[in-house]
């Protein structure tokens, strides 16, 4: 990677891999189920404008979707785990996220407006949490996913307190 930015210091919790795996599996099941539905619908419709070779081989659709997506389901969590990192230093929150595409976000603590700590279903199961940091702009807002609950609690508490001390209402 030649982007001249160093990686943020902290990794997210290892349990985040399980989280992303669960999420990816959930999406995978939905996608394959949906394509099976679509395939049976098209196959049994008997529409005249559907070419014969397509309706005869429509069962291939879910198979192709499954074969293409299955490796991604496994790859995505590990890839994300390698990319997702965060750091709070010099009163700036620096976070990196993504997998195929990636994103670096810099949020100075002095411009933070709200800090949310949220837990979805899977996160609650795994004892993880997401810290959502909001400023007056979407492009200066960040959410750090897959943190240990205790770390997330401490980070959001620190950020809220520090943001209060540093308040800078230029916006």
């Amino acid at each position: 990677m030649t982007v001249p930015l160093r990686a943020p210091a902290n990794q997210v919790s290892r349990k985040a891999i399980t989280l992303w795996l669960l999420e990816a599996l959930f999406g995978f099941v939905l996608l394959v189920g949906g394509s099976i539905l679509a395939a049976t619908w098209i196959g049994g419709s008997g529409w005249s404008w559907v070419p014969g070779w397509l309706s005869d081989n429509i069962w291939l659709l879910p198979v192709v979707v499954g074969v293409v997506m299955a490796p991604l389901v496994v790859i995505e969590p590990f890839w994300r785990y390698a990319v997702h990192r965060w750091e709070l230093s010099g009163d700036v929150v620096y976070a990196r996220a993504g997998w195929i595409s990636r994103e670096w976000v810099f949020v100075p603590v002095s411009r933070i407006q709200t800090v949310d700590k949220a837990q979805g279903w899977f996160e609650r199961l795994l004892g993880l949490a997401t810290v959502e940091i909001r400023t007056a702009s979407y492009a200066g807002s960040s959410s750090i996913k897959g943190l240990d609950y205790a770390i997330a609690a401490r980070l959001s508490e620190d950020l809220a307190r520090r943001a209060e001390e540093l308040r800078d209402d230029a916006t």
Partner: peptide, 13 residues
């Protein structure tokens, strides 16, 4: 400059 509240840098594949 003072209106800037943060930066997002994005890079697609």
């Amino acid at each position: 400059r003072r209106a800037v509240v943060g930066w997002t840098i994005r890079q697609t594949w």
